[in-house]
Structures are given as C-alpha cells and as structure tokens.
Amino acid sequence: MGRYILRRLLISIPIIFVITIIVFALVELAPGDMADYFLSDESIQYMSEEDIQAVRESLGMDASAPTRYIRWLGRLVQGDLGYSFIRNENVMELLTRRIKNSVILMGSGLLIAAVVGIILGVFISLRQYSIWDNGLTGLSFIGISMPAFIAGIIGLYLFAIKIPIFPTGGMYSTRGDRGLMDLLWHLVLPAVILSIMHAARIMRYTRFSMLEVIKQDYIVTAEAKGMKRRVIIYRHALKNALIPVITIIGLSVPMVIVGAIFLETIYNWPGMGTLYHRAVLSRDYPIIMGANLFIAMTVLAANLLVDIIYAIVDPRVRYE
C-alpha cells in the first residue's frame, strides 16, 4: 500500500514541473511585460532610455525567460507568489484568504452533490423503470445540461428576488450577527445550485453502477442463501457499486472549480473565483498565475486522492 502511494506521488512530480512551466509560459506569451505596469505612457515621455532600463532591471525583466522562470520557481518554493499589480497585496496571503471562502462553497457543493446523488441513485436503481426512475432520470438530463451560470441567475431570480427567502449575495450580512447561521443562510443557495449538475451526474452513475452490480453472481448467491434484502443491498451491492462512483466524484472537481467561479461572480461570494475574475479583467498576472497554479494543483491532488482511495477500497488495483 505504502509503495503504491509512493509510486503515484513520484509520478506526479514531473507533472507538477510541467504545470509550473505552463503557468509561467501562458503569462510569458502576453504582449508587454511586468515593467509596462510600472511605466505609464505618460511617465515614459519624461524618462531616458537608461531610466527605463533601470526600472526593468530592478524588476528583473532584463533576464531571459528561462532565467526568470528559475527565479520565479525559486520564490514559489518558498511560498512567494509576488505582489498583485493592482491591489499591491501579497498574492499568497490574498489567495489563501480567498481560497478558504471558496473551499467552503465548493466543498459544500460537492458534498451535497455526492450525498444527494448517491442516495437518489440507489433509490431509483432499486425501482428500475418506475415513475421515480423515469422522472429523476429525465430531470438528470436537464441537470447535466444546465450550466452553472444559467442555473445561478435563475436561482437568484427565483429564490432571492421573486420569493426572497435567501440573500442576493455576499457571504455575511452587512449588519447584525455574522455567525455560523448567517454564513449558512448565505451559503445554501449558491452551494445547492453548484451541486445540481454534479448531483445529476453522480445519481446517474450510481444508478448504472448499482444495476450492474445487482446482476453479479455473488448477489444472486447471497439471495439464494436467503439473506435479507436490506443486507444484500447495503452490505454487498452498495459497497461495490460505489467504487466507480468515487472516480466520478473526483472528476467533478475541475468542473466544481469552474462552476464556483461563475457562482461567486453571480452571488458576490468573496472567494477565489471573484478574485480571479477581476484579475483577468484587469490583467493582474501575479494573481492569475497564483490562481492557475492552485487550481491545477487541486485537480492533480483530487486525481491522486481518487487513485489512492481506489487502491484502498479495491485491492485489485494495487497488486497490478
């Protein structure tokens, strides 16, 4: 087991390197460079060639791209992502603060999706072709095709404006008690909307997987032995049926991140998504680089976690 995990971790190291190269190169492709932010068109008129060169040198922009990459990587390893062009804040601190808020939103969204998806998936798999099955499977088609931003504005319109039971945005109320209940009240709407598409997907996979498992010989054997239906379903079938569902939950992570960017902008959630969106609009490259790096690492970590969980629950994988 330990060896399997170690091997998986070692395989990730070159991928992490390539990720950092891509993150750096993407911004490198941009016309102009960091120095342009500090040299406005106006100030350039009053500066001599040497002055401009001095500014570039002080920013380290005179070095070649590979040298700057190495320097950037060196600072990155020490947890230094530089300073935001626009906000003049330390990117690392800014990102960690915002990511915490995003994790609350994304985590609860994914949790709701997994719980609701699995429960409904098991529920309808035991009632194949019933009204419940047909109805929920039909709805899941709409759920899967429903992009987060459309669901977001429809949800906001219906449940915050037409029937104002939830706030229109933000994470806490501007006045009054800012406790946990207040947070939950602000969280429910965006988190539930974020979970819709994934709940639908997870439900369909759980249903499919359950139906596959129920056909297996060991379930027939258990039935023939006269075991209770409930024991067969929850102890024998569900455990095995959930294995492929883990992959689907893991694969949802990148889409949850993307969905959260939309929902954060719609619901003014002070998370990484709103920060990222504003950084993109104002071309604040240090923030864009930091966020890209974080997102790619999260996806990589999610994939790794899926592989490890897989190896724990399914011993066949680790003895390959």
């Binding site: 390539v18 891509i22 993407l26 994939n303």
Partner: peptide
C-alpha cells in the same frame, strides 16, 4: 499522452480565461 495528462489538470475554462485575458 503526457501532454494530454497535463492539459487535463487545467479545467479548460481556466486557461481560456487566462488566454483571452492575454
């Protein structure tokens, strides 16, 4: 395949945002 592996660690919309910003 390694190239696709790396591409898949970035959700497409994220790179799209960066590239369109550029």
């Amino acid at each position: 395949m390694r190239l696709t592996d790396v591409m898949m660690t970035f959700p497409p919309l994220i790179i799209m945002l960066t590239v369109v910003a550029i």
